[in-house]
Design a protein around this nucleic acid. Sequence first.
DNA 1: CCCCATTGTGAATCTTTTA
DNA 2: GTAAAAGATTCACAATGGG
Lengths: 374, 374
Amino acid sequence: MNLVLPVRPVQERVRATPIFDDGQIILGDCIEELAKLPAKSVDMIFADPPYNLQLGGDLFRPEGGRVDAVDNDWDHFASFAAYDAFTRAWLTEARRVLKDDGSMWVIGSYHNIFRVGTALQDLGYWVLNDIVWRKANPMPNFRGTRFTNAHETLIWCAKDADAKYHFNYRAMKALNDDLQMRSDWVLPICSGAERLKDVDGHKAHPTQKPESLLYRVLLACTKPGDTVLDPFFGTGTTGAVARRLGRRWIGIERETAYAKVAETRIHATLPLDESAMETVPDKRSQPRVAFGLLVESGMVPPGTVLSDAKRRWKAAVRADGSLNCGPHTGSIHKVGAGLNKAPSCNGWTFWHVERQGRLVPLDTLRQEHLAGVE
Amino acid sequence: MNLVLPVRPVQERVRATPIFDDGQIILGDCIEELAKLPAKSVDMIFADPPYNLQLGGDLFRPEGGRVDAVDNDWDHFASFAAYDAFTRAWLTEARRVLKDDGSMWVIGSYHNIFRVGTALQDLGYWVLNDIVWRKANPMPNFRGTRFTNAHETLIWCAKDADAKYHFNYRAMKALNDDLQMRSDWVLPICSGAERLKDVDGHKAHPTQKPESLLYRVLLACTKPGDTVLDPFFGTGTTGAVARRLGRRWIGIERETAYAKVAETRIHATLPLDESAMETVPDKRSQPRVAFGLLVESGMVPPGTVLSDAKRRWKAAVRADGSLNCGPHTGSIHKVGAGLNKAPSCNGWTFWHVERQGRLVPLDTLRQEHLAGVE
DNA sequence: CCCCATTGTGAATCTTTTA
DNA sequence: GTAAAAGATTCACAATGGG
């Protein structure tokens, strides 16, 4: 039987079928179940542990809706010390289970990733990279109190400093248009049809990760036939992508409801050769240049006077990239629109700087900036 | 005298001229010199501490012999412990020196940032964001063994969870083409003419940060006239940008050679015009105007009919500045919230008056009122 | 059929002042 | 201290529905 069930009340048990031929879901506590696995038995570990968010009260959107926050019991810890103890416990068992030439990934946010990284290093793991998942479509900061929290961090590490880990350098380079894959990955969050729903139409899991993220992780450091372990399985994204890529998988999950969803999901997942026509969603970021970037970089210093092509208006650039022209203040687009009494205006082509007596549109400077950056 | 010199061999001293009118370089050990600064005296701290673990010197020997049973490598553990002791020492002094409404930035890489973040949290600092500096032109990974290390991480934090820190939300938004500034910043590394060289043409400092990075940091959370402290001053990027933006600055640097370069550099830096230094003002910092004041002053006479932007609702202004719309009665905010069935509503932007056939938000009248008063 | 306006939503440490 | 009121605040997508 592939679905390993610890002793539990009958009503909590997951149905023992279907049988998977390439993996298993273990229902139970992550640390206890990790301790039962044999030493040096898995090639890679992907872990998405609780982040230990410390949320206050409700948060409302500007239009009045309430943010559906992560307030699950599994994310509550009494203190940093309690979170650290939990982290060190599962990391210790994970290291025992990992093969000497295996590697591990852990994902987190600023709430927990520093604790995880410190614990990793203290336990002897060797950090290979920290990877930034730059979310193409993060939730904004509704109150204007901080920077939009637009990324999460993954730590990739080997068992120790001398370990011979596996890295598919060529595959990563190919995935990135023949340029070395960088430590920042732009990927959309999990939404749309990929986002699993329960019978009521609510999201089945509050923090489901996109398959594109796991795809890249698995392709980076495992081979077909390798065994991948996920101690915080949730709705089984790791299992689904592992199956698709021909890797074996083991998932440990405490919540019966999540495990059931994962079971159904993975059962419906086809290995890649049978669904070769599918493409992996991997949207690449378009280089977008904010006018402020030209100000910061010194290309258009604050105080520069801009004018339109016919020198009818002049406006001064301020420190934050906003313009000032009489009563009109704001972005290059907004001030241009105000002066033209138009609903909108392309500030990049409307505004010019003077160079050797000739007016050069901002758009030209933008092109030069892009050329210099690349 | 602005350049404060501790007792040192003469040949190590920095020339005491020129005098700065907006800051000072303190030559000496970061922790010792921090300890001499008065409590709650600086508005912001930017710190670029050493990334590597060989700190040298006998000052920060790891205290105690706590051996982690899981880790047999004593030297390895010892260097982390030494780094942690050093980190906690300077972070403790920094927190004492920081004003209660100030904030701090620390930059690092995966070698040290987890240690720094954990120490921060343990000492009571409250993380506001982790910011990823995505390098537009990083050094590639020559051996193809890992992902290109293409970013560094900055932690932005307040003194504690309840602290009232300062954030120039509007200025950041202006700098990013009127979109919320995100936690990932794409900026080029420091190179070309900006990169300081010594007399031999070698780079003067191995890890000089780009001014664009400091520009954004300083613009985000300081005001003109604020005092910025950099305990690892190096070649003075923080001081140069602070001077340019009209902020006061204090730099602590142990190496005479770096301090000399910084001195020359900052002396050659010109402050921006005050008008160029202006940024889009935050609404929260604007003086409050009671809606009733506009009614009293005749700008919005009693009886005026207000409507929302889509003319779905209308409400009549009463003599005391309250609104009436069917069963809803009260302030412009309360009636707007009631009609929207929302928990709250900004009546200033929700309600409009008709002017020459066009709807103008009350917020515009408020701006006109403020302009007329001044 | 397409097109556009509208609505919903995502790991969130998300306010400040006055009574 | 607490409670209520004032007032500031959102980006990228996906799904839906009307014309």
